[in-house]
Nucleic acid binder design. Structure first.
Lengths: 214, 214
DNA sequence: TTTCTCGGATACCGGCACTATCCAAACACG
DNA sequence: CGTGTTTGGATAGTGCCGGTATCCGAGAAA
């Protein structure tokens, strides 16, 4: 398959494919001679994955490169690799550790993890970027005076835990290690938009159900 | 409060506050004379909200302006206003209606809504941007060959429905209409990052629980 | 009076995701 | 065979977005 055919079959412009090649998101094709390179189905699949990560998952190009690097790196165990891939996802900016709301949010989140019994692996969890994102989000809510009850957050966490169990159960159904890894990462990246869209739809539905269109 | 004090108390630089004023994210202060304007606590609160929307909620500046416009517009009913605010949130790009995967995803999502019994308001739901986002995300998954089972998506949806019920129950606890509206929008914008962070943490937790760090 | 600070207008900046142009090699076709 | 088109690679440019920096003249402070 030539570059132009790759472009046609993927719906991605040649210029953009060249850009992805430059950025290392796509491996170069097999060079036939000075002016011809050949691409295969795997390139097409990779390209579609990259596009989906960017357009559906809203990942920056640099992040896609990083995530793919971890996915391809088979020198690590699964938890670490999945963790590495997840940790590369874009996160909220570093909070100001001095800020009183941030400190309070830290305590609140730690309390939450304690309640949930996620503290077995707390050493792991607390260095995760997701932990930081959670702290930042909670701090922002509190600073704005929204007194979202901690019990409510616990309930959210239980729901997301159920979702994670569903994710990983599904991942389990794949036989090969490589497929498991890819499905896990795809799950992390593409399930989030699905959950988000479902959450918004559910809010609209529930709001319409309760209040009509008054 | 002068601009400099507003800057100090919010932690946002003067130049940035001026930018937000230009962009209409902040109402101008009360003009005392040609070179002095005064800001009050409400400005400070608004500024914090704007910052949180941008940094925690990752909303583009133009979107913040639009969402705030809907929040401030008290000429509409609650469902519509909340809907309007949610609809202004950044969405996935318009899918290619010709694409077979998009068409299949449409059918799959309609089937999902049917199963969930959300089809009472289907006329509303199907014009929602969230519906479109869902279609795009499902189409992307399918195109990549991830055969995420529809039942799994139904389960996700049920979970998010529970989350939405929790959201709106909490919104109910506020007495005034204005507070309800603001809490609902803040909920939509700030609960999402919380859910996302919890989802990732739960995945890490569950993965560690199942596989250790092999 | 002198100096500092204020708010407003305008121009500028850096990053990002592309996009357009150019080039020489090579294939396609009459 | 020659001529026009297509190829992949290199490089430069574009448009948008979130901010920054600079300049200005009016007023407050010492």
């Amino acid at each position: 398959m030539r570059l132009s055919e790759l472009s046609e079959r993927s719906g991605v412009s040649i210029a953009t494919i060249k850009y992805y090649l430059r950025e290392g998101l796509l491996r170069p094709g097999r060079q036939l001679n000075a002016t011809t390179a050949e691409y295969d189905e795997e390139h097409l699949r990779r390209l579609r994955l990259v596009r989906a990560m960017i357009q559906v998952g809203r990942l920056p190009v640099a992040t896609v490169r990083e995530v793919l690097g971890h996915v391809d790196d088979d020198s690590l165990g699964r938890t670490i690799r999945l963790g590495a891939a997840l940790w590369a996802l874009p996160q909220v900016p570093e909070p100001d550790a001095e800020d009183e709301y941030v400190q309070a949010a830290h305590r609140e989140v730690d309390q939450l993890l304690e309640t949930l019994g996620w503290s077995n692996s707390q050493a792991l969890v607390t260095i995760s970027p997701s932990y930081r994102s959670l702290v930042v989000a909670v701090a922002a809510l509190r600073r704005l005076g929204y007194d979202w009850p901690p019990e409510l957050v616990v309930n959210y966490a239980k729901l997301m835990r159920e979702a994670a169990v569903l994710d990983l159960d599904f991942v389990e159904t794949h036989p090969s290690e490589a497929e498991k890894m890819e499905t896990a990462v795809a799950g992390a990246i593409f399930v989030e938009p699905v959950l988000q869209a479902l959450h918004r739809l559910a809010q609209e539905e529930e709001s319409a159900r309760r209040y009509g269109f008054e």
